[in-house]
Design a protein around this nucleic acid. Structure first.
Length: 469
RNA sequence: GGCGCGGUGGCAGAGUGGUUAUGCAGCGGACUGCAACUCCGUGUACGCCGGUUCGAUUCCGACCCGCGCCUCCA
């Protein structure tokens, strides 16, 4: 049951020790909902989904919290541009996000708190920080965190507070005591109709970092096991969360910090600011959902992965090998005890070593070989059992849950219909019986040009689409 | 400039102080009416230079290159 994970805080792989035996409390920073999610977001959240699935499989009771940031400057600005309220905008993109994540096989978290539902907790934590001298109210009404007061500032991202001081930006209009200080509560002008909440801190809205500290505390308590997010959140976001939470709560915050690697395109990180992104929707228009997920889990979660046509096609071909093995074997559901499978030991060892999904996938190809050998030997009972195991492992990874024929035959509605294909297969069958191989080959060729591959076997002819989308 | 990560066979991508990763693609063969699938066979891969070692792709150091964070970002 035990496993190792790489913690950014320790800068090394560590044996996991839970705060409560058998239980894992985990928080992951989620989306800021002002636009569609891009495939880089998909990468990160698929990674955490995979981690949660595996941990649950291993018997841990996991409480997984992934927040939604539904108030921030970009949301406010975008809503203003669209002439709609922040609620309308964020509501729309929350729905889109859930749809997109669902398509990628990302299971919903146990709790999905929204920042705007936790204003009271945010205000309370900010007040607490002021009481303890870790925060102060500036003359412009903003409340800032006093970085100099938190001695361990920089421990997560490995930064030296002095150097941060030297390199910090000073923005016009800042009323900070120290350029490293960051905002906890931004004052706003209620009379101007600015977005905000009335509170003991005055009318305003939360800074970016404090919401996560408040929601962590509210949903998981002062201390919990794992905190995750994209690696670009390491600094300043996560560093600031630690500063806020540990100062306010007086105890350690998250024990392990897990960061997902970036998705690259043309060698650069895919990001909103570089404007080099594809939305999840864009990608799912071009490739089957399962192929995209398989592509995303084919690299270790901390490694950068490159988004490219070639890599997606390769993922498609790799998945085909699994489904080809599952093909023509009756489905009797998942195997009940995977622990007896020949792939179990290697699979669990790989996943228990910092969630090495690529190595785990590699271990499943041994099962594929076994299934193919079994099919050749016509031992159907054993094949059914082995395919059940494959599906069982696939479920942990969030793949291989489809019927094989569905996988192979899925395609665009613009393509030739299944009925027409079946009709042509019948015609070809007759031509073959008539030994009219020219006609039979012509039909096969015609179908191939429409992206349909025919596979003959003793039991008959099956087909699959080669240009799936 | 500061901090950090990485450079593996045609491609993707694990891993290891001395023995086959794995997958995709390619090539040869079996199977097939011919194909596809499947099976068998096939690739002297570890950025460069030193060092440690009986032995380094794997450890240490320098160098080159790429990338990330340092500002909003998953």
């Amino acid at each position: 049951m035990n496993f190792k994970l790489y913690s950014t805080l320790a800068r090394s792989k560590q044996d996991f020790t839970p705060l409560t035996p058998g239980e894992i409390r985990m928080y992951v920073c989620g989306m800021t909902v002002y636009d569609y999610c891009h495939i880089g977001h998909g990468r990160a959240f698929v990674a955490f989904d995979l981690i949660v699935r595996f941990l649950r499989f291993m018997g841990w009771k996991v409480t997984y919290v992934r927040n939604i940031t539904d108030v921030d400057d970009k949301i406010i600005q975008r809503a203003k541009e669209n002439g709609e309220s922040c609620e309308e905008l964020s509501g729309r993109f929350i729905a889109a996000m859930q749809e997109d994540f669902g398509a990628l096989g990302i299971l919903p978290p146990d709790h999905e708190p929204k920042a705007t539902d936790h204003i009271d907790q945010i205000v309370a934590m900010t007040e607490k920080l002021m009481e303890l001298g870790y925060a102060y109210k500036a003359s412009n009404g903003d409340v800032y965190y006093r970085v100099a007061k938190f001695a361990e500032y920089g421990k997560l991202s490995g930064r030296n507070p002095e150097e941060l001081l030297a390199g910090a930006r000073i923005e016009v209009g800042d009323q900070k005591e120290d350029p490293r200080d960051f905002v906890l509560w931004k004052s706003a002008d209620e009379n101007e109709g600015e977005v905000g909440w009335s509170s003991t801190l005055g009318y305003g809205r939360p800074g970016w970092h404090i919401e996560c500290s408040a929601m962590c505390k509210h949903s998981l308590g002062d201390s919990f096991d794992i905190h995750g997010g994209g690696e670009d959140l390491q600094f300043p976001h996560h560093e600031n969360e630690i500063a806020q939470s540990e100062a306010a709560n007086g105890v350690g915050f998250a024990n392990y910090w897990v960061h997902a690697g970036p998705l690259r395109i043309d060698g650069e990180k895919m990001s909103k600011s570089l404007n080099n992104f594809f939305t999840i929707r864009d990608v799912l228009d071009r490739y089957p959902t399962e192929v995209v997920r398989f592509f995303l889990i084919s690299s270790h979660y901390r490694s950068p992965i490159s988004y490219s046509e070639d890599n997606l096609i390769e993922a498609q071909n790799g998945l085909q090998r699994f489904y080809q093995a599952m093909r023509h074997v009756p489905d009797s559901g998942d195997a009940s005890n995977l622990s007896e499978s020949l792939a179990y030991e290697a699979f669990v060892a790989a996943m228990s070593d910092d969630f090495n999904s690529r190595e785990a996938i590699a271990s499943l190809y041994a099962l594929v070989d076994q299934i193919n050998a079994t099919k050749s030997a016509e031992d159907l009972d054993l094949a059914v059992k082995l395919v059940g195991e494959l599906r069982g492992f696939g479920k942990i990874l969030g793949i291989l849950q489809q019927d094989a024929e569905s996988f192979f035959q899925a395609g665009s509605t613009a393509d030739i219909s299944a009925e027409d294909i079946e009709q042509l297969i019948s015609e070809r069958q007759q031509a073959k019986l008539d030994k009219d191989y020219a006609r039979a080959d012509q039909i096969r060729q015609d179908l191939a040009e429409q992206g349909v591959q025919l596979d003959d076997s003793r039991e008959g002819t099956s087909w699959r689409r080669t240009n799936q989308s």
